[in-house]
Design a protein around this nucleic acid. Sequence first.
DNA 1: AAGGCCCTTTTTGTATGCAAACTGCTGCTC
DNA 2: GAGCAGCAGTTTGCATACAAAAAGGGCCTT
Lengths: 248, 248
Amino acid sequence: MPNAMGDALDTIAAETVRQPLAERRLLHESAVDRLRDMIVQGVLTPGTKLNERALCEQLGISRTPLREALKVLSTEGLVALQPNRGAVVATLTEDRVREIFAVMGALEALAGELACRNMTADQLNEIRALHYQMLAHHARGELAPYFRCNQEIHLAIVEASGNATLVASYASLNAHVRRARYMANLSQARWDQAVAEHEKILDALGRRDAGPLQDLLKNHLGAKLTVVLAALGALADNAKETADAAYD
Amino acid sequence: MPNAMGDALDTIAAETVRQPLAERRLLHESAVDRLRDMIVQGVLTPGTKLNERALCEQLGISRTPLREALKVLSTEGLVALQPNRGAVVATLTEDRVREIFAVMGALEALAGELACRNMTADQLNEIRALHYQMLAHHARGELAPYFRCNQEIHLAIVEASGNATLVASYASLNAHVRRARYMANLSQARWDQAVAEHEKILDALGRRDAGPLQDLLKNHLGAKLTVVLAALGALADNAKETADAAYD
DNA sequence: AAGGCCCTTTTTGTATGCAAACTGCTGCTC
DNA sequence: GAGCAGCAGTTTGCATACAAAAAGGGCCTT
């Protein structure tokens, strides 16, 4: 045994230099994922100028895969490309949020209908499990984990439709509004109500009762829209104040 | 006047060397458009391997913008990227077509509802004009122009919803099925029936009668699905025969 | 002092170069 | 003869190089 640390070092080297089994991901793909996360989680706020050189350094890649990633995010709508003038994080206007929610409403309604028809018992159980996990976060007042659970439930319902195209469309639109959602400051009353709505949704799902489920989903989404718009307004006000402060 | 041809030559030079006012489009953008057209119109058939060097030559660009275009088309779902193994035109399975039609059904239903509420008189008139143009093509038995008109009408209805997000989602999905649509061989009976359905759709639109309109759109799309699936089956059979012939 | 012009610097868009991965073929082994 | 190792050629993924466009800044003009 020449070196007790040999194994550990080899492991690290294998992970950093070359992933043998993990089938090393392509640079532009991981760049897309990382940038998307940064945008959705609000690290990169709407309107932020995306300097290629700076992002390259931050991600440790060259401009070629970065630019490919920006093109992808642009077709996803999260980034706006201005010819010869670079990329900026797409802004979210109130109108656009309303548009997105309208489309998501149609998609969720379809998902609910299909889920009632196609959902497996396992899928239903998983949704139930996520629901109880969410209840726990609600009881403890843990907002961020609650949001994550909440998202997973909605995604699980859409996935239970068994329609991959629907899942992709829904996920793409969802990424846009999640940006605003992360900074939503739920009142306790609205939070409690949202949980109650989820209870009813789960109930309808369990009975595979498509009609009422669609109505419940629609109302739930409508309430979410109100919350998101409020968050968006608050955000805009903050930005305005900051801008005003610059003039003081 | 030193040279009578001077103006013409200058014009050509200006167009080929540098577009001054037309704000020369970016190479990767036009590449996306050209490749998308080739895929949708069936020049590049599903499963075709996309060799970068060959496409570069064909489009007269280098690999960088071409690869950016492939990434974009991949996120649109029209091509599939195989890491380290290149890109192929995405295949259209029957299941996938059914999925797409299910989602498009939900989107068209929403579009119909919103159009009844938001459509301007001008938009309705434009749809009427397109409809009559389509009737002319039907009367003359001109299939390809009929399809184009047909597409434009459906897109115009979605646009009349006033929801840009809805338009984008619809257009993206529509690109996929248009591939199959181009090779659909409509029977005269089905063709006549489709025109009759359009007549009713236009009527409901004119009355801004959302409920019946949604039903009509849904039935119309269901009939289209049948036609597309038949075309897809015929295509698959052709491919199979060709493959079989190779063994003779 | 305000505005515009020109020059420098930065940034973007595209082409090219290079290394790793894949493909296909030859020849060897069993 | 089937199958596999190994090598040559091709293709992909990424980095870099270069040119055109935009942004910034100083100087001059008015």
